[in-house]
């Protein structure tokens, strides 16, 4: 049996994390979640996910700082990351793509379902429902 693809979700808002987890799970993904970037880094020490769902506005270490740390290590240089943030500022978008993200999604513009569909198209998932 093929393993389910694993998504690491880094999002500090409880309710949002809840929604994302539920939706991803029901779409056939396995979910690891972290409240802060530091927690995310800790998780990464033990397990490499197939994709990282990253929020930018995080307490403590910010989203970009996390991403920069990630890209420094060879292991994670090409780890797919999608940023899901409230901000639509062009500088942030530019900065994100400079750090080699796969996509930059503005929360208020997208339905959860559509974000999940995007992730679906990026990863092979035999457990799709």
């Amino acid at each position: 049996m093929d393993k389910k693809p694993v998504i690491l979700v880094i999002e500090d808002e409880e309710s949002l994390r809840d929604a994302i987890r539920t939706k991803l799970a029901s779409s056939g993904f396995a979910v690891l979640s972290a409240m802060t970037a530091e927690e995310g880094l800790e998780i990464l020490e033990f397990h490499t996910p197939d994709l990282v769902w990253l929020d930018l506005l995080l307490p403590g270490m910010g989203g970009f700082q996390f991403l920069e740390r990630l890209r420094k290590e060879d292991k994670f240089k090409n780890l797919p990351v999608i940023i899901v943030s409230v901000s639509a500022s062009p500088e942030k978008v530019q900065h994100a793509f400079q750090l080699n993200v796969v996509d930059y999604i503005v929360k208020s513009q997208y339905r959860l379902e559509d974000i999940v569909k995007k992730i679906d198209s990026l990863l092979p998932n035999p457990h799709k429902k």
């Binding site: 309710s15 929604a19 409230v86 929360k107």
Partner: peptide, 19 residues
């Protein structure tokens, strides 16, 4: 302001999708 709104939106969406 926008975080709770996004949460409400996503949950409503999931309810409507039958999740």
């Amino acid at each position: 302001l926008r975080t709770p709104l996004t949460s409400m939106r996503w949950f409503s969406e999931m309810l409507l999708a039958g999740d």
